[in-house]
Design a protein around this nucleic acid. Structure first.
Lengths: 214, 214
DNA sequence: CCTTGTGAAAACTTTCACAGCT
DNA sequence: AGCTGTGAAAGTTTTCACAAGG
């Protein structure tokens, strides 16, 4: 549950808004100028009512009898999410996963920019991966300042995850995307999203074992 | 909502059980033989009641006045999730992300084994990445049979995602972990979990912009 | 006749609070 | 005294269904 000064809505609403945005960008490429909640629902596997409700927390953006204008809907979503300005990412942990993320193609078309990477391994420090320099964790604080890092992606091994998190918090970064399979302890002024591949896979395994016929 | 022949419970329950399992394995390493729901709750940021409720759908595993035996709890969770036998993974798309996943360290200690990778790029086909051969998508069907692939991880670029999914479905694989930012269309006999980095980051950006003081 | 926006209802999930056992 | 297991209550999210508008 999230409450702004205007309204309260589900955290899932925000996740879905981002999914709507990404997919509408792709839909726009196909030359679709107008789209209804029913059409969006069919493409994104969401009920039309869910889509309309999600938007309703932020205003009225459609035309009755017609639907939504693709362009307008995209700017509305960008504005709601706040992604109409650039955000700078620091990748903490320049192992295989970290290096893959530096060059992640899915950020294309968004305002998210990877600006720096960090590691403790002297072999990696100073190397340049796809135009991004790998800095020492010792220089973390200064480098975060210098590059204006807004969000850190944590891709270090489990053992170092909490310690790296402490550095991130100490440097004043308020948002962390965590790929390590640990629950990080942070003050509640810092936002965390966890991406846990193992638990997603184990969930799939549960489904395979329990034909929860849908 | 998931219903087996015994019981109904939240899909979130399953996700959490997997998180409990991973963390209990780590807790066991520290020599903890007994643990209470209160202690687990503090470590994993879950209410003790939530933990007990999650388990209650599957039986009674604790001792009143004492707590849970770590070893026993781990086997119970492995058994519930069905991860006490090995599962074989095929990585579809051997780009940067795919290659990082082939060597993903987080699978250590689990029964999840990467067995094969696939790509359409002739440059990549036939190469061996950390002991895993990259096969041609043309050989997908046969290779899936040969290696007994249970789950496919989809790490191809957006443009090829639906087509690759169609091959996966046609080959009879019933579970997909999807890293591409598209909603895949599959028959409802196939289970999908989506991992969408961009939407997780955009959610963090929303939080940064709306101090939803918690 | 089609589609949006939305209160109200339904469905689902979490938390409470306490009986029951060690 | 301390902790589990759980029905019942509270809280949250989704869906329904329809008024209002093009």
């Amino acid at each position: 549950m999230i409450c702004t000064n205007k309204n309260c809505f589900s955290t899932e609403t925000i996740r879905r808004l981002s999914v709507y945005l990404q997919n509408l960008r792709r839909i726009r490429e196909t030359g679709t100028h107008t789209i209804s909640s029913r059409e969006i629902g069919a493409i994104l596997n969401v009920t039309p009512a869910q889509f309309r409700k999600d938007l309703s927390y932020f205003g009225e953006f459609g035309r009755r009898g017609v639907g939504y204008e693709t362009d307008q809907l995209i700017s509305v979503l960008e504005h709601i999410l706040g992604v109409n300005k650039a955000y700078y990412i620091g990748i903490v942990g320049a192992g295989r996963l970290g290096r893959a993320l530096i060059n992640y193609h899915g950020f294309a078309g968004s305002n998210i920019r990877v600006r720096a990477a960090f590691d403790v391994d002297p072999e990696k420090i100073g190397t340049v991966v796809h135009g991004i320099t790998v800095y020492a964790m010792d220089d973390f604080f200064a480098t975060v300042r210098e590059h204006g890092i807004d969000i850190c992606v944590l891709s270090v091994p489990v053992e170092g995850a909490q310690q790296a998190t402490n550095s991130i918090v100490a440097a004043g970064v308020k948002a962390i995307l965590n790929f390590s399979p640990v629950i990080l302890q942070v003050p509640d002024t810092v936002y965390i999203q966890n991406i846990d591949m193992l638990s997603e896979l184990e969930r799939l395994i549960f489904y395979l074992n329990n034909d929860t016929s849908r």
